[in-house]
């Protein structure tokens, strides 16, 4: 069953700059879906459109729709979207720096109510390191611990879909591997879906069931893991398969076109 459906949305910044055009994607139940692309491809804008943060940058969804569990979510305020069970782990400023780890977990408002202490224990079970750091202030955590806390506090909202912006950014590969394993465990045990926005295709394709590749504000490519990992272009430009100098997917299209046209 599809939990989250983004249907041909178009996002315009400051009424003139179109950042995302006709993007369609779907996240199914208990699915991990990756949204890949280089800087400026429109991944974060898409994520912001879903989580309701466009208004701050003077941007709007001008076309298309976002539906979650049968409810329209486009252009709604962020706390209402969070209240429906869609929670974002942002790229930066992801924890409250002056609150302790325990307070960071108690502050979120749970979707549908429930006992937050018990939920905190469940979350500590996924991240035992956080239980040790309970009384440490958020601002003093390391990058990896911060990412753990960000995911943990998002789980305190009891989301049905977890949106993660740049899981691997600025983290050591060993930490990223650990986080990936935990995300899979979280998906399996809590039965939630995860939309993972990543620059690193290698990281995302290891755990994603399905992936979309974005370029210049459009989805240029999508498919399940095996199809994407086996695809020649994705291999060449995102997984660094052929070892050639890095170019963007756009170059491939232009290169092919020119080859077709000029023989």
């Amino acid at each position: 069953m599809t939990m989250l459906r983004v249907e041909t949305i178009e996002v315009v910044y400051k009424r003139v700059i179109t950042a995302v055009q006709g993007v369609t994607l779907a996240v199914g139940e208990r699915q991990i879906v990756a949204l890949l692309g280089t800087n400026g491809a429109g991944k974060t804008t898409t994520l912001r459109a879903i989580s309701g943060f466009l208004g701050l940058d003077d941007a709007r969804i001008t076309e298309g729709s976002i539906t979650f569990n049968g409810h329209r979510l486009d252009n709604r305020p962020p706390h209402q979207i969070a209240a429906r069970g869609l929670t974002l782990v942002p790229e930066r400023e992801k924890v409250f720096p002056n609150l302790t780890v325990a307070e960071n977990l108690m502050a979120p408002v749970p979707h549908g109510g429930g006992d937050q202490r018990r939920q905190a224990e469940r979350v500590y079970h996924f991240f035992p390191r956080l239980a040790e750091l309970r009384n440490r202030v958020g601002g003093l955590l390391s990058g990896g611990e911060r990412q753990m806390l960000a995911i943990a506090s998002a789980l305190m909202c009891r989301p049905k879909v977890l949106l993660i912006d740049e899981l691997s950014l600025g983290l050591a590969p060993i930490v990223v591997d650990d986080l990936k394993r935990r995300l899979v465990a979280i998906r399996d045990e809590l039965g939630i879906s995860i939309l993972l926005v990543e620059q690193s295709a290698a990281v995302a394709l290891e755990i994603a069931d399905y992936a979309y590749v974005m370029e210049n504000g459009r989805v240029v490519f999508d498919g399940d893991r095996s199809r994407l990992a086996g695809h020649k272009d994705v291999q060449e430009f995102y997984l660094g398969g052929t070892g050639s100098a890095r170019r963007s997917y756009r170059d491939v299209k232009q290169y092919r076109r020119s080859r077709r046209w000029y023989g």
Partner: peptide, 14 residues
């Protein structure tokens, strides 16, 4: 306190 430190994140946490 959370809203005072980071209103955006607070809104996202419901």
């Amino acid at each position: 306190r959370a809203a005072g430190q980071n209103p955006l994140l607070a809104a996202q946490r419901g």
